[in-house]
Design a protein around this nucleic acid. Sequence first.
DNA 1: ACTTGACCCTATAGTTACTATAGGTTTTAC
DNA 2: GTAAAACCTATAGTAACTATAGGGTCAAGT
Lengths: 129, 129
Amino acid sequence: MKIGELSKTSGCSIQTIRYYEKEGLLSEPERTEGNFRLYDVTVLKQLEFVKHCRSLDISLIDIKRLIDLKNKPEESCSSVNALIAQQLALVNKRMKELKALKNELQQMASTCNSDNTIEGCGIIKSLDS
Amino acid sequence: MKIGELSKTSGCSIQTIRYYEKEGLLSEPERTEGNFRLYDVTVLKQLEFVKHCRSLDISLIDIKRLIDLKNKPEESCSSVNALIAQQLALVNKRMKELKALKNELQQMASTCNSDNTIEGCGIIKSLDS
DNA sequence: ACTTGACCCTATAGTTACTATAGGTTTTAC
DNA sequence: GTAAAACCTATAGTAACTATAGGGTCAAGT
Ligand SMILES: [Zn+2]
Ligand SMILES: [Zn+2]
Ligand SMILES: [Zn+2]
Ligand SMILES: [Zn+2]
């Protein structure tokens, strides 16, 4: 199949597919005489793998590491485990930050009833301090 | 004071201060004969305002809007309120996403005891499906 | 055979909020 | 007088895409 069909089947945009290829996350496909990319079905699995990783917010560099690890099926999976643990730690950290943000924003919002001038607005006062 | 001192006092890097100025978040300071930026104390308040907004993850564009609103103290503060509400909605959305991420990552991590080959690793299996 | 339109190609610029150089000028201290 | 420290502008890099610009290829219809 050509890239347009792969794009529709996978739900990835054409540019993203080409970008993933450039970054080494997809193997380079064959080309037609006219230089069009020509994919076989195996690339769909690769692309799904990448998409699944991205949905977990794993960086492209880490996805590449995972792909490299996948190609060494005999080795220990401890690196895989470490990578996921690190990703989890990142998510936990961001969640903490977001909770703090949420608290402060909520408190700020509660000081404003929208029925005021900017000069007297509690939100602006909070932001000024 | 010159930019180095402002940087130390405020905790913003020199480049960041110049960047904020370029983006219109700080008023342009006077210059010495030799073209060095020369600040008076009022800029510190401006910078603190920006920093406080950034700590709430408000985008530079929205900070600029807030600054513009601040300069119209007689107007209604409903725009301010709306902007903060929107920011809160954004944070809530990201928190939901992060929770889903965390769940999936945790579940994946639980399928791996690090004592396996990559071929048999539960994490890799999850990512493949 | 020829044209039109859909599809494809590469290369480049834009996005956000900075950070980091490169290459140069000014000030300050000795 | 000179050397270091501080400053200046302009430009490139970061992450993961998205969006053009300016082409080439291919299938269908006339
Ligand atoms: Zn999943
Ligand atoms: Zn208000
Ligand atoms: Zn605060
Ligand atoms: Zn494992």
